[in-house]
Amino acid sequence: MHPLRKKRLTIILFLLAGVGVAVGLTTYALRQNINLFYDPSQIAAGEAPANVRIRAGGMVEQGSVVRAQQDLTVHFRVTDFASSVPVQYTGILPDLFAEGQGVVAVGRLNTEGTFVAEQVLAKHDENYMPPEVSDALKKAGVDNPYTESTVTQ
């Protein structure tokens, strides 16, 4: 290769490495701001501030959803299978909201440790299957065919 071209290529590689390191360090320093939500373990460990608008995310715990008789208030627990956080929400939930599904709730943590949500978003996972397959799997007692370890109940 021509020495001039070799020099240009070296400069480009240095440029790319420099930009990469700069962006890497910046995103590493800002990682808590880039994270969309706190998970229940972080909230249990006291990392999330109280009475500040934050997002909390995780799975809706099985058997934890309690709907009020009078209004649209719903109580449920969000879990990451290590800790869980009680959530209270008044409003219409997205269609995909269900026990065992992922959610991201926007709201405030009150002083009793309950997360009072203003908005609940459903988090979809990367698994897709036809309804017949899902029914058959439920009958067989398998939760998710794509991860072999989660044969439960």
């Binding site: 880039i34 969309l36 997205p94 269609d95 995909l96 908005q119 978003l121 459903a122 988090k123």
Partner: peptide
Amino acid sequence: KPTWGTWWIWDA
């Protein structure tokens, strides 16, 4: 909009 409940969110 129908799946998450929002058009846009500032996630990564």
